[in-house]
Amino acid sequence: MNKYSIGEFEEVVMLTVAVLYENAYGISIKEEIENRLERKVSVGAMRTALNRLEKKGYLDSEFGEATAVRGGKRKRYFKVTPLGKKVLEQVMQTRKQLWDSIPSVAFDFKFG
């Protein structure tokens, strides 16, 4: 079995954090996921996922500058840790292995 286990949503969040690179904070991650995957994400769900990933050590975070738009509250920027990268790679690897082992006839649908 896999050494590092993460859920599908967690995977999406981590990938999005990576995509946004230097600009990955709460709202931007949420909007990015909503735009790319066309699904609704609640602040609560995302926040818990980010929290959990940070606790597991897959993500790291630091505060940015305070801005007026946010009522004077600082943003917390996330980035993927090396461990996080390894996990993502491993997930991709397992998927790839699975894809590779699918016999060609399995998806050879004949209609009619």
Binding site: Y25, G26, I27, K30, V43, R47, N51, F63, V69, R70, G71, K73, R74, K75, R76
Partner: peptide
């Protein structure tokens, strides 16, 4: 630990 940026996120979203 979370309150500052969560609240920030929410107020940004609200605005």
């Amino acid at each position: 630990q979370l309150i500052e940026d969560v609240e920030g996120d929410l107020s940004e979203l609200f605005a």
